[in-house]
Design a protein around this nucleic acid. Structure first.
Lengths: 242, 242
DNA sequence: CATTTTTGGTTGTATATACAACTCAGTTTA
DNA sequence: TAAACTGAGTTGTATATACAACCAAAAATG
C-alpha cells in the first residue's frame, strides 16, 4: 500500500483538523505535548516536532510554561496588506467617513464575466464609494462583488461598516491578486478626489478569493500627490530546486 | 554571567561563520551531522536541530543520503523583486539595449545627504539611463550611488552590464525599501519614454543597502500605458505579538 | 570490462529519559 | 488579607539509542 505518512505528520493533521472544525478557535489552547502523547500514541518528541512545525508555519504560537495556542489568521503582504481603511485613518488620529455613490445589482460587465465565471446577462453587485479623512477625499473605491459569495452585500449599512470589513466576515480572504498602475484621471476622478490640473491617479486593481470562490474585483484610485505605497525587504536565503 | 546560548545555536553560529568566511560557498557540502557531533561536542539531535533551523531559514538545503549544502542567496519580494532587466527582456524573446544619458560624480543633492550619511559638498555618483526593449524605451533609471560602496561605479561599461548587476557583485543587496507613486511626466520623460499626451508615469523609488551601508538610491519611471506591477498572495497563519 | 553487490556514510523518523525554565492555581504563613 | 511558598503542569533544551531510506564509491562477480 501507499507509503505511510510520518507520525509527526499525523499529529499535525490531527491539530489542523481540530482547528478547521472550530474545535479550537483563535488564541485557544490546543492539547499539550503530554496530552498529545496520550491522544496520538506517540513520543513527546514526535508530538513536539508536530507542534514546532505548525508554529513555524504560523498556525500556532507557543509560550513556555503556558501552552500552545491557535494563531490568528492574517493575510501577509508586506507591501499590499489589505487593511481596514477606516481603522487605519482612525489610528492616525483622523476621522473617517465615506460617501456612497452607487450600490446596486447590475449585469456583469463583459470584461469581468470570465473572472466571476458568469455568463452574459448574469448579475453582480456594484458599488462605488469615496473614502474620506477629516472630510477630505483620499480614495475612490469601485467594487464588483460576487452575489454567491456575499448575497446580502446590498443590504449593509456602509456608514457603519466598510465593504472590506463586511466581506472579511462573510467570505474570509484566502487569496488576493494585485495590479498597480499609474493612470490619467478622468473627469469623475478629478472632481471626486479634488485633483490638481493634470494630476494622475495611482490605481490598484485587486481581485480577492475566499477558498476557490472569487469574491470581489475592486479598483482603488488615489491622488498621486497624496498617496504612495511603501515597503521594505530583507535578503532571505532560499532553497533552489535541485 | 549572561545567560548561555543554547548549544544548538552555537552550532548554527559555527555553520554561519564558516559560510560568511567563504569556507563553504554556494552548493558546497557543510559538515554532516556526525561530523558536527565531533566538532562541536554535541549530540546528533542537537546538531540536527541546528541544521534543520538553518534549512528552514533558507541558509542550507538537505538531501537525504547525500548531505547538507549551502543554499544560494536570493532577495525575496513577491511584488517588487529586484530583477535583472536585461535578462528579463531577453527571457521574453525581445532584445535589450540601453542608452546612457549621464554618468558622473557630483555633489550629493541636499535631499539625499541624510540617506547617504554625507555632509554638504560630499560627492556621489549619478547616472541616468534609458532601458529599451527592441529599441523602444520602457524605463528611465536615475540612480545615485554611494562611492564608498562601489568606488569603481563610474568606470564600468554599461553597454555590457547593467548598474544593478554590477552593484549586486560589488555590494550584494541585503535590504531594500520601495515607494511606488503615480506622477505627472515632465518634458524630459515625455520625450524620452515617448509618452502620449497627458500620459503619467509610474514611479518606483528604491533604496538599497548592503549590510549596513546604503548603496544606492534610484528612481525608475515607467510609461503608465505600458507598465504595471502585479502580485498574488495567499493567506498565511501568523503569530501575533503577545 | 560491464554489471551487480557490498560497504560506509549520509539524512529522516522515532522513542525514552532527564533536567531547566516558566506559568498558574492552591495552600500556608505572617 | 496580603505575601510567600508549593505543587502540578507547561514548554525548552539536551542526550542516547535504534532503525529506515537514500546515496555513492569500492569491491566482487560474470
Amino acid at each position: 500500500m501507499a507509503q505511510e505518512e510520518p507520525r509527526y505528520q499525523l499529529v499535525k493533521d490531527f491539530i489542523l483538523s481540530g482547528i478547521n472544525a472550530k474545535q479550537w478557535k483563535e488564541h485557544k489552547r490546543v492539547p499539550s505535548e503530554n496530552e498529545l502523547v496520550e491522544m496520538c500514541k506517540v513520543s513527546r518528541m514526535t508530538a513536539r516536532r508536530a507542534l514546532d512545525e505548525l508554529t513555524e508555519e504560523g498556525v500556532l504560537y507557543r509560550v513556555q510554561g503556558r501552552g500552545t495556542f491557535v494563531a490568528p489568521k492574517k493575510l501577509h503582504s508586506p507591501l499590499l496588506e489589505i487593511r481596514n481603511i477606516a481603522e487605519e485613518i482612525q489610528n492616525r488620529g483622523s476621522s473617517y467617513s465615506n460617501e456612497l455613490i452607487l450600490l446596486q445589482k447590475e449585469s456583469c460587465p463583459v470584461h469581468l464575466l470570465k473572472h466571476f465565471s458568469l455568463n452574459e446577462g448574469d448579475e453582480v453587485y456594484h458599488s462605488i464609494m469615496v473614502h474620506k479623512e477629516d472630510g477630505k477625499p483620499i480614495q475612490i473605491e469601485q467594487r464588483y462583488v460576487n452575489p454567491t459569495a456575499a448575497p446580502e452585500y446590498l443590504k449593509q449599512d456602509y456608514k457603519s461598516i466598510t465593504p472590506n470589513v463586511y466581506l472579511s466576515k462573510v467570505a474570509p480572504l484566502t487569496e488576493a491578486e494585485h495590479q498597480i498602475q499609474a493612470k490619467e484621471a478622468d473627469p469623475f476622478m478629478k472632481v471626486t478626489l479634488k485633483l490638481q490640473e493634470l494630476e494622475p491617479v495611482l490605481c490598484i486593481d485587486r481581485i480577492t478569493w475566499s477558498d476557490t470562490i472569487l469574491v470581489s474585483y475592486c479598483q482603488l484610485y488615489h491622488p498621486a500627490s497624496r498617496f504612495s505605497l511603501t515597503g521594505r525587504f530583507k535578503t532571505k536565503h532560499q532553497l533552489t530546486e535541485l
